[in-house]
C-alpha cells in the first residue's frame, strides 16, 4: 500500500521492503510511543501484576493469585452495585451524547452571524469548573426549592422526582449533567469531521432535489464515519471510567445509587486501608470490559468499511 511498486517482485525484495516499511512506520510512531511507553505503559503493566497481589503501595507485593477477583465477584456487593451503575451510566450517556453532539454540530456548522458565539456557548460547559457545575446543577435539581421541580409542579406534576437525593433519580440526574457537559466537547470533533465532507456532494444532491433529511442520511452520516467511530470508542471508554462528575455531584450516593467503578478504585486505594492490590484488580476488570467493547467496535467498523 505504501509504495506504488508493490507488484510482483522477487520475495527477497518484498521482505526487504517489509523491513523498510516497519522501520519507517516505527520512526513515525517512536516520538509518541517512547514517551507513552515509559510514562503510561510501564505503570499499567505494573498495575496488571499488582492486581494479583496484596500490596499497600510500598514494598514488595505479596502474590495472592486470584484472591482479589474471587472477593470482587463473590464477596463485594458494592463492586457489583458499582459495575451495574457504570453500565447504566454508559448505556444512557453514550447514545444521548452522541445524538446531542451530532445534532449541535450540524446545527452550528453554518456561516451565519453569531454562530461563533453559539459554538463557544456550546463548548462552555466543558470549560467551566466542574465544581461550579456540580453546585449549580445540584441547586437546579434541589427537590423542594430547585427551579426544575418548580417547573414540573407548575405543569401539573404533583410529586416530582427527588433527583440527586433520591436513589432512583440520582443516576438520571448525573446522566443529564454528563451529557450537558460533554456534548460541546464532542460537537467540536463532529464539526471537524464535517469539514472533511466535500461540499460539492451537497451541491450535487441539491441539484437532484434531495431533501435535507436525505442529504443528512446519504452524505453527512457516511462522510462522518471515521469521526463517529472515534467518538463512539472514546465515549464508551470515557463513560465507563466516569469519575470526577459523579464524585463532585453525588459522591456516589444516596447509598450506592451512583457509585461507579472509578470511584470504587479511588476509595479502595486512597480513602481506606490503601489496598492497591485490590484497587488494581478492579481497574483490570474495567480494562477488560472496555477492551471487549472496543474490539467489538473495531470489528463492526472494519466490516462497514468494506
Amino acid at each position: 500500500m505504501t509504495t506504488a511498486t508493490t507488484t510482483a517482485r522477487p520475495v527477497r525484495r518484498r521482505s526487504r521492503l517489509r523491513r523498510r516499511n516497519t522501520l519507517l512506520g516505527l520512526s513515525f510512531i517512536a516520538p509518541n510511543f517512547i514517551g507513552f511507553a515509559v510514562i503510561t505503559l510501564v505503570p499499567i503493566l505494573i498495575l496488571f501484576y499488582v492486581a494479583f497481589t496484596q500490596w499497600y503501595a510500598v514494598g514488595t507485593p505479596k502474590w495472592t493469585g486470584l484472591a482479589n477477583f474471587r472477593k470482587l465477584f463473590l464477596h463485594d456487593s458494592t463492586f457489583i452495585d458499582a459495575l451495574i451503575n457504570t453500565l447504566y451510566y454508559t448505556a444512557a450517556h453514550l447514545p444521548l451524547t452522541l445524538a446531542a453532539s451530532l445534532g449541535l454540530a450540524v446545527l452550528l456548522n453554518r456561516k451565519m452571524r453569531g454562530m461563533a458565539f453559539f459554538r463557544t456557548a456550546a463548548f462552555f460547559p466543558y470549560v467551566t469548573s466542574i465544581v461550579a457545575i456540580a453546585l449549580v446543577w445540584n441547586l437546579m435539581f434541589s427537590p423542594d426549592t430547585g427551579p426544575i421541580n418548580q417547573l414540573l409542579r407548575f405543569i401539573g406534576l404533583s410529586d416530582p422526582p427527588g433527583w440527586t437525593v433520591s436513589s432512583t433519580w440520582a443516576m438520571p440526574a448525573v446522566i443529564i449533567v454528563g451529557t450537558w457537559r460533554e456534548m460541546g466537547y464532542y460537537m467540536l470533533l463532529f464539526l471537524a469531521g464535517l469539514q472533511t465532507i466535500p461540499a460539492q456532494l451537497y451541491e450535487a444532491a441539491q441539484v437532484d432535489g434531495a431533501s435535507a433529511w436525505s442529504r443528512f442520511w446519504h452524505i453527512t452520516l457516511p462522510g462522518l464515519r471515521p469521526t463517529t467511530f472515534f467518538i463512539t470508542v472514546m465515549l464508551t471508554i470515557e463513560s465507563m471510567k466516569v469519575f470526577d462528575l459523579v464524585f463532585v455531584m453525588t459522591a456516589g450516593g444516596p447509598g450506592t445509587s451512583t457509585l461507579v467503578i472509578s470511584q470504587l478504585i479511588w476509595r479502595r486505594a486512597f480513602e481506606g486501608e490503601g489496598e492497591f492490590g485490590y484497587a488494581s484488580a478492579i481497574a483490570l476488570v474495567l480494562f477488560v470490559i472496555c477492551l471487549g467493547f472496543t474490539l467489538v467496535q473495531f470489528v463492526i467498523n472494519r466490516r462497514s468499511e468494506k
Binding site: 507513552f36 503510561t40 505503559l41 505503570p43 499499567i44 505494573i46 498495575l47 470508542v233 472514546m234 471508554i237 465507563m240 471510567k241 469519575f243 467503578i261 472509578s262 478504585i265 479511588w266 486505594a269 486512597f270 484497587a279 488494581s280 478492579i282 481497574a283 474495567l286 480494562f287 472496555c290 477492551l291 472496543t294
Partner: peptide, 11 residues
C-alpha cells in the same frame, strides 16, 4: 487505545 481505559488513579 485500550490503555485509555485504565483509570489514571489506579496507576
Amino acid at each position: 487505545i485500550a490503555t485509555i481505559a485504565v483509570p489514571w488513579q489506579a496507576y
